[in-house]
Design a protein around this nucleic acid. Sequence first.
DNA 1: CGTGTAGTTGCTATC
DNA 2: TGATAGCAACTACAC
Length: 648
Amino acid sequence: MAKPRVIYWFRTDLRLHDSPALKAALELNPEAFWPVWTWDPHYVYRARVGTNRWQFLIDCQNDLSKSITKLNKKSKLFLIREAPQTLFPKLFKAWKITHLVFEKDTDAYARDRDAAIMEAAKEAGVEVIVRSGRTLWDSDELVKKNHGKPTMSMSQVQAAGPKVGPIPRPIPAPKSIPNPGQTSLDFGQDQPEMSPDFNSTSRKHDDKSYDKISGPKEDFAVPTLEELGFPAATTSHRGGETVALKALDEIIANEKYTATFEKPNTAPTAFSPQSTTLLSPHLHFGSLSIREFYWRVQDIVDNFSGKSSQPPVSLTGQLLFRDMYFGAQAALGYSFGQTMHNSHCRFIPWHLPSKVDHKTKLVTGEYHIDSPQADEWFQRWKNGMTGFPWIDALMRQLRQEGWIHHLGRHAVACFLTRGGCYISWERGAEVFEELLLDHETACNAGNWQWLSCTAFFAQFYRCYSPIAFPQKWDKEGEFVRKYVPELAKLDKKYIYEPWKAPITDQKKAGVSVKGDGKVKEKGVYPKPMFDFSERRTICLDGMKNAYHVGLYGDHEKVIDGTWRTLFDDAAEGPTEGKNFKDAMSGNGKKIRDGEDADGDDDDGAVAEDESGAAERGGENKGGDKGKAGTKRKAGQGTLDGHVKRAKK
DNA sequence: CGTGTAGTTGCTATC
DNA sequence: TGATAGCAACTACAC
């Protein structure tokens, strides 16, 4: 039998420490061993990646390559610029490969890609070894132990996780790495399909990263921002396993911080230093292992003499949330990243909904402009020109640094969706996808659904104010002064609502509050794009109504557009019956048929009259086939105030 | 089954 | 200055 000739395929595990897959690969005792990264056009063109995240990826790849070379000066990270689906079959032959090893990836695209690669390997007689290593628990196993259902709450994760098994202790980095075999590529390069390019507007010039299969110097080097056509990064946050482990060391060294960390008590306005760990981008690229993070923290907590914090607010609790979102995505696949066809995402008639290809059931990347005003609000939100300093400061920090505090993400997400603009969470998720260094498909989609109250969370009446909320953390407005320098000299009385500043105060501060924020002008800060409390009331009404209608993304009425007949034409959102060709005959009277919300007619899809519907507290979720939801009369609700009153 | 309680991180007025 | 009640009223889970 031939001695193992192994490709180790790096993807979301850009590290040497605690890699179960890398360990399995080295245990084959290979005769030849190639650490490979395939430069996948899907990531280059069909994912939204801003310049700061490109820089972070490049940092990680360069650092890993250096670390490999330290272990074996003949080796490095071999970057090959071609889609893995076409590359590997050629590579298997050219390098006489016997084994392909990689870490499991449960992202929807990654599953399709890896299935194709495994099929190709089978045909080529190459053995494939896959190990879980990206999460605390294997996400598919977590789902299995959660009765085969997506993990939609923390308690489900805390129940199912231990059933999968104890969280593994981290594996040390390897002490040696075998020589690579030959690296000649005696085959042609399949050129990628460059269109559509989701990143075209960010590029200075066309992407050149595919000009030669092994790079411009034919040395398998990591591509540069210049090759990609991107401008220089603006963030100071840097990637790589070396800086990740050093940052972890520094956090762990502060035992009190580590053991008593409570997320809701960390200030979203802190910037020098920030109040949280900044380790999430490293978890995304795998430059830090989540189990390394978990156990280093847990060991401190176990030996801490004082009172330590507990999940969900503790540091380890944050990691559990990540596994929850991965479990939800592992079960729901592509649909988890969108509303349409998503059985667990509520349907709300947001403005600017995604365009969907109903053949593939996937969003196309474009959206409907049902309201020019909503689109204008969206552009202003995106560019940090809403006229609300707290929102604008956060959005500018996001663009510049690629990171904002979790509570800041709450603030801008609530503002864009249920607490201001009433715009689809998918628009916001796309902006985060482009700009966040730590963008993780599962966590991003999950958090946007959480904040928009379409899944995971439902208390939509808890709404963040762009004025009161930051006031609680930063009375002086230091955060706004840093990221919105126009307002740097404004009196703290007006820092979160500068439109209220008298002209004399504006003059003193050297700023003029005027205009619609469409263009940036020196010494000018825009007026707020709407009256917040007015919008808050409109959004709350809209949410209440949409919850009563009770549709989910996989409901046939959502898919075929007849959901419009269930909403008032006067309601917020693209609900105008006249735009819908098949609007039910007769008047536009609201029909609240919560009974029909699951698409089954097992309990008789009878439309309720107004009084009957008014008593209904919304129907149970759509995916809960065959089960009528628990009905509870409105007056019977378990009311916070009621309970407290009763106690008195 | 129904009922009571809890849920990572709201806001405002009042003491 | 910090704790508490009231606001209007969600779902999930435990018992």
